[in-house]
């Protein structure tokens, strides 16, 4: 689905990674690991095409921007001064039965008219994850998705990722926390 060839990147003459090559095939979960500052987020951003790499190139089967993929970074992309409902409107999510059921599973349904700024960090993270979960993307890229989630939500996300892979779609995550899923690992430490 995506092939990364000989990727190199450096910031201010400091090398983050060098000659990195890997491929993501259908139905595969990739976990990017590495110590702090090893360039996990940067690698995701390069794969998304936000940051241009110093050397190397990326082959994609589809072009980004066709609802084929979904990304969630450290930042949630939520407006803290708006209610949950309004945020869902900004994310282009319709409030139909299927979507509402998923929101209920994430225990967000009672909080629909609450202002996002009043929610806890974990609840905000769940709201942001709802966008990923409700999309029909073929590839999802998550940056530290398990940080701040309680056990139930973590299980829910793992279950979602499991189903996602099983239907022949792929996912890339960066995580410090161990997960109960079959994954192939890319370690950015030397």
């Amino acid at each position: 689905m995506i092939k990364v060839n000989n990727l190199s990147f450096s910031v201010n003459n400091k090398k983050l990674f060098h000659n990195l090559s890997f491929a993501i095939s259908e139905g595969e979960l990739i976990r990017i690991s590495g110590s702090n500052g090893s360039g996990k987020t940067t690698l995701l951003k390069i794969m998304l095409g936000i940051t241009p790499p110093k050397k190397g190139f990326i082959e994609k089967e589809f072009s980004f921007g066709e609802k084929e993929f979904e990304f969630l970074g450290h930042k949630n992309g939520l407006k803290t001064y708006l209610s949950v409902k309004d945020n869902l409107y900004l994310m282009d999510l319709k409030l139909n039965d299927k979507n509402l059921k998923v929101l209920n599973d994430l225990s967000l349904l009672d909080l629909m008219s609450e202002t996002v700024g009043n929610l806890s960090y974990g609840q905000q993270k769940k709201l942001a994850l709802a966008r990923v979960i409700l999309s029909k993307a073929r590839l999802i890229l998550l940056d530290e998705p398990f940080v701040g989630l309680d056990d139930d939500s973590k299980k829910l996300l793992e279950k979602f990722l499991f189903n996602h892979i099983k239907t022949g779609k792929s996912a890339v995550i960066t995580s410090h926390i161990d997960i109960d899923l079959p994954y192939s690992e890319i370690c950015l430490d030397d």
């Binding site: 998304l48 980004f64 921007g65 990304f71 970074g73 930042k75 949630n76 939520l78 407006k79 900004l90």
Partner: peptide, 13 residues
Amino acid sequence: FDDGSMEQHLLKS
């Protein structure tokens, strides 16, 4: 920029 929605806009169609 701070809340990350700019990235999302950049990645949209």
